[in-house]
Design a protein around this nucleic acid. Structure first.
Length: 232
DNA sequence: AACTAGCTCAACCGCGGAACT
DNA sequence: AAGTTCCGCGGTTGAGCTAGT
């Protein structure tokens, strides 16, 4: 099989260098997103189109948030996962600045651990808010952990969402049953999160293991939503 | 201080579907 | 209509880091 663009030749793999990042960024600046298979030809980068796209989407794209997920975002992820399942890209659309990869990783590390030892559970009581000592990520935009959430979740009109996402997905946004639930759900999340104090988040309501059980036990996304949103 | 286990996240892989010829 | 190419997605892997012993 081909790997986007040029037949299987020795594509460079592994971590990207600053130089490669620069080349890719310049390419996108000039040509816009898309046409990934042309990147190698146009820039001399010895990377597959796939790899370029991934690098851009997950790392170089402007507007990416590079900090710890906020409790609100976590709540949204949980809700949306209950609704949509492992549709990470769909979930990511409701979290501007977050990538599907990031959300997927986050879910796996924080919510997908099952049958943890009691010892582990102890550790996990506080894991989410525990501020990491900013690991040596290649710095991007300034850390935005404390920035105001600009996601449109509490916006009843949904207009901000449209602005944030552009027009691409709007046409289908509310075309399914689960989508019809989302606006309602979003207000719900915002409002009940307001009422939950942090200690409650990780001690009681936000018992993530229970949450997982609840979620995985759901047969229908819509049903799941109502079950899930039932705690208040 | 050294070793080990666990965690995080960037990147790769394979597949399916859309777009194009 | 059929074949090919391109793109995007979800799943998985592995290197690097951190915390615990």
């Amino acid at each position: 099989m081909m790997s986007w663009g040029i037949p299987e030749q020795g594509w460079t793999k592994g971590p990207w260098t600053h130089e490669e990042d620069k080349l890719l960024s310049e390419y996108v600046k000039l040509h816009g997103e898309g046409r990934w298979s042309s990147v190698a030809r146009c820039t001399g980068l010895n990377r597959s189109g796939k790899s370029c796209r991934l690098r851009w989407v997950n790392y170089l794209r402007p507007g990416l948030k590079k900090g710890q997920l906020t409790p609100l975002e976590e709540g949204i992820i949980i809700e949306l996962h209950a609704l949509l399942g492992n549709k990470w890209s769909n979930i990511a659309r409701y979290l501007p600045g977050r990538t599907d990869n990031e959300i997927k990783n986050y879910w796996r590390t924080h919510f997908k651990k099952k049958h943890n030892s009691p010892k582990k559970k102890e550790k996990e009581k506080a894991p989410i808010l525990k501020q990491k000592p900013a690991p040596q990520r290649q710095e991007q935009q300034p850390q935005e952990d404390d920035m105001e959430m600009t996601i449109p979740y509490a916006d009843p009109s949904g207009e901000q969402m449209i602005k944030a996402q552009g027009t691409k997905d709007i046409s289908s946004m509310y075309s399914t049953l689960e989508d019809q639930c989302l606006p309602m759900m979003s207000q719900d999340v915002a409002s009940w999160l307001d009422t939950i104090r942090e200690e409650d988040l990780y001690g009681g309501v936000w018992n993530l293991e229970d949450a997982e059980g609840a979620i995985t036990g759901m047969d229908h996304p819509t049903t799941g939503f109502f079950l899930w949103s039932g705690f208040e």
